[in-house]
Measured scan of single mutants.
Amino acid sequence: AEEIWQQSVIGDYLARFKNDRVKALKAMEMTWNNMEKKEKLMWIKKAAED
């Protein structure tokens, strides 16, 4: 689920960090860890469908 979420937001994060992939990935990891369980559930369901 986290991978699907990352694939959907990586472009936004890379743009925000001027294509600094290391910073973008760290920010994504922090965002994922801070997400509410119900927000993650949507992505977990999406992962299950694929």
Rank of each mutant, 00 (worst) to 15 (best):
N33K: 11
D12S: 12
E36K: 08
E39P: 02
M42N: 09
D12Y: 07
M28P: 00
N33R: 08
T31L: 04
E29V: 07
M28W: 01
D50L: 15
S8W: 12
D12P: 03
S8C: 08
I44S: 07
Q6Y: 10
L41S: 07
D50N: 08
E36L: 05
A27W: 06
W43A: 05
K23T: 08
K37H: 15
E2L: 14
Q6W: 07
K40T: 02
T31R: 12
M30W: 14
K40V: 04
E39R: 03
A24R: 01
L41Q: 13
V22W: 07
W43N: 02
I4S: 09
A48H: 08
K38V: 12
M30A: 12
K37A: 15
M28Q: 00
W32M: 00
A1M: 09
W43P: 02
W43S: 02
I44E: 15
A48C: 05
T31F: 10
K18P: 07
Y13V: 02
K46S: 07
I4D: 03
W43G: 02
K40G: 01
I10L: 13
R21N: 08
W43C: 02
A15S: 12
M28F: 01
N33Y: 10
N34G: 06
M28R: 00
W43H: 03
V9T: 03
T31Q: 08
Y13P: 01
A24I: 03
K45E: 15
N34R: 06
F17N: 05
I4T: 08
A1N: 03
W32C: 01
W32Q: 00
W5S: 01
K40I: 04
L41H: 08
L41G: 05
K45W: 10
N33S: 07
T31N: 08
K37I: 15
F17Q: 02
K37M: 15
D20E: 06
D50P: 08
V9E: 02
E2K: 14
L14F: 04
W5H: 00
W32Y: 01
T31P: 01
R21V: 11
A24E: 00
F17H: 10
A1E: 05
L25Q: 14
L41Y: 11
A27R: 03
K45R: 08
R16P: 01
K26L: 09
V22C: 12
K40H: 04
S8V: 08
M28V: 02
R16C: 09
K40E: 02
E29L: 09
E36F: 03
K26V: 10
W5A: 00
A1Q: 03
R16T: 12
N19C: 14
D50Q: 14
Y13A: 02
M30T: 12
D12H: 09
I10F: 09
E36V: 03
R16L: 14
L41W: 10
A15H: 09
R16A: 12
W5P: 00
K26E: 11
D12F: 08
W32R: 00
K26S: 08
E36R: 04
T31E: 09
A27M: 10
W5C: 01
M35G: 01
S8T: 10
D20S: 04
R21E: 09
F17M: 04
Q6N: 07
N19K: 04
A15M: 13
K37L: 15
L25D: 04
R21S: 09
L25P: 00
D50T: 13
D50V: 15
R16W: 03
R16D: 05
L41E: 15
A24W: 02
I4W: 07
Q7Y: 06
N34Q: 12
A47C: 07
M42H: 15
R21K: 14
I44Y: 13
G11T: 11
R16N: 08
I10R: 05
K45D: 09
A47Y: 08
I44R: 03
A27Q: 06
E36Y: 03
E49T: 07
I4G: 04
M30F: 13
L25C: 11
V22A: 13
A15C: 13
A27N: 04
I4K: 15
A48V: 12
E29S: 14
L41M: 07
K46L: 13
K37P: 15
Q7A: 15
K46Y: 07
W5L: 01
K45N: 12
I4N: 09
A15Y: 08
